[in-house]
């Protein structure tokens, strides 16, 4: 589903994962700001586009956006911290989102999440030391018939079993590009 990402999308798959040099990306950020200059309520679409591009929102970039849009930094920071999609720290190469919608919960989503935290040795909201994975929770991807569901980047994995988590991650860990997405195998 990669082709559906366009400008102002909050991506589930952020490209770069290490810290970036804010100075080097100012020109692209400015391009995004120009694009939304005439839009009312532009702050959120701008933040979404910038995060989509950079993978996260460094403080220097936020102050820059604040100046350019003439919105106090406190307000920008307020918005960034309010919405769960925004991140001010670099995220992993792969974003793992465990669905904890009710259907997934009653069909074992919590056990899947526990297996992932054990396997990755991180908590929800954290990123592994090797910057490979970030672990997040999701609230219903609309695939309740296939619960429990785990989304890794843009791939939906269905009927995930806690004791097979290792296998699932292995396909991503080495980043080999074989077909791993959206299979209905008992992952």
């Amino acid at each position: 589903m990669a082709e559906i990402q366009t400008d102002c999308r909050t991506s589930t798959h952020a490209e770069p994962c290490r810290e970036i040099d804010p100075g080097s990306v100012i020109p692209v950020v400015d391009e995004i700001i120009t694009q939304y200059r005439s839009t009312r309520g532009a702050l959120i679409p701008v933040l979404q586009s910038v995060q989509n591009l950079l993978g996260y929102l460094p403080k220097e970039i936020l102050t820059h956006i604040s100046r350019e849009l003439s919105i106090p930094y406190s307000e920008v920071a307020g918005v960034v911290t309010f919405y769960s999609f925004f991140s001010t720290t670099p995220r992993g190469k792969h974003i793992i989102r465990v669905c904890l919608g009710t259907a997934c919960y009653v069909r074992g989503g919590k056990e899947v999440l526990q297996a992932l935290t054990r396997e990755l040795k991180i908590k929800v909201g954290q990123t592994t030391d090797d910057h490979q994975f970030s672990l997040e929770i999701g609230r219903c991807f609309g695939a309740c018939g296939l619960a429990p569901v785990v989304m890794i980047d843009e791939d939906v994995h269905q009927r995930v079993k806690p004791n097979a988590i290792g296998l699932l991650l292995a396909a991503y860990r080495d980043d080999d590009d074989q077909d791993r997405g959206g299979s209905d195998e008992k992952a």
């Binding site: 909050t10 309520g41 959120i44 679409p45 919105i71 309010f82 919405y83 925004f86």
Partner: peptide, 23 residues
């Protein structure tokens, strides 16, 4: 306009605040 991951934005006045670019 895209949401940014806040359930409360399903509440109509919160949704409008979000379109306006606020929390």
């Amino acid at each position: 306009r895209l949401g940014a991951g806040a359930f409360v934005c399903g509440e109509e006045t919160a949704l409008l605040a979000s379109i306006e670019g606020e929390r």
